[in-house]
């Protein structure tokens, strides 16, 4: 339970003159829900971007499951066991919900283009299995009834949930959720919190970016706080809430602007 799945060691990310992350160090432990919070522009999404290989870090190291991720191709990082959702929804709108998830489940497929062309049994078997798995994930997230709808025509809340199902389709060990509750009403947030706990209980590790404090504090086992690219706290939700530096960081900026 307490062994670590991922370690960020002194991770620095500079964009020209802007230092988005500065010497950030923290651990993600197996099967925990780790909250990642901070004011707007603190560098939370950038953490996801450097883990998933969107950006190459300026210095430092990211170890996932015992191996460094630096220089690894983005799809290979996903294959190794990290999948994410996007803060601004990036589904494939012209595909159905089911196809969106299936495209991600393809990550671990053995059969490729040639066996698909000739309809080899392995390809047909995998196709059937992946379809069942994708439907299972949609049901798990609670949007099974939307399987055959085009992603772009889905209601906003369903799209947000589909982002999660799609990421889970890649069978990650670590699931990165970037503000999954953005735009949700309180009832939907409560429901989502339950879903996130359910995901963890199914064996996943979750790194959760969220602006809604009560949601983060309710579901997280531990919370890391970023401010201006620096880690200012890393503790249990209760302790983080009382941390003067955290209070200052949050009082220093306008209330939840997103």
């Amino acid at each position: 339970m307490t062994s670590s799945l991922m370690q960020l060691k002194n991770v620095t990310m500079k964009f020209g003159g802007v230092t988005a992350l500065s010497e950030v160090t923290f651990d993600v432990k197996k099967q925990e829900i780790l909250g990642l919070i901070g004011p707007n522009g603190a560098g939370k999404t950038t953490v996801f971007n450097v883990i998933t290989g969107v950006y190459q870090i300026t210095s430092g190291e990211i170890i996932f499951d015992g191996k460094s991720l630096s220089g690894m191709k983005r799809y290979k990082i996903t294959k190794r066991g990290v999948a994410r959702t996007f803060q601004n929804i990036r589904l494939w709108g012209d595909m159905t919900a089911l196809e969106n998830v299936m495209t991600a489940t393809d990550t671990h497929k053995k059969s490729g283009l040639v066996s698909g062309l000739f309809g080899f049994p392995v390809s047909r078997r995998e196709e059937k299995r992946d379809k069942a798995r994708a439907q299972e994930l949609l049901d798990f997230i609670g949007i099974g009834e939307y399987a055959d709808r085009l992603a772009k025509n889905l209601p906003y809340g369903v799209q947000r949930r589909l982002e999660i199902a799609r990421a889970m389709g890649a069978e990650p060990k670590l699931l990165l959720l970037d503000e999954p509750a953005a735009g949700f009403n309180p009832a939907e947030k409560v429901e989502l919190a339950a879903t996130i706990r359910k995901i963890r209980d199914a064996g996943y590790t979750v790194l959760l970016i969220e602006h809604d404090m009560s949601l983060v504090m309710r579901v997280s086992d531990r919370v890391v706080v970023l401010d201006f690219g620096q880690k200012i706290a890393d503790d249990s939700p209760r302790k983080v809430q009382d941390d003067p530096r955290v209070i200052e960081a949050y009082l220093g900026v306008p209330e939840d602007a997103s």
Partner: peptide, 19 residues
């Protein structure tokens, strides 16, 4: 599916494990 995802959003495709 891989082609379709590439056509619609190549970065998202790559990040969800599509080579």
């Amino acid at each position: 599916r891989a082609w379709e995802s590439i056509r619609q959003d190549e970065d998202a495709a790559e990040l969800l494990g599509v080579p």
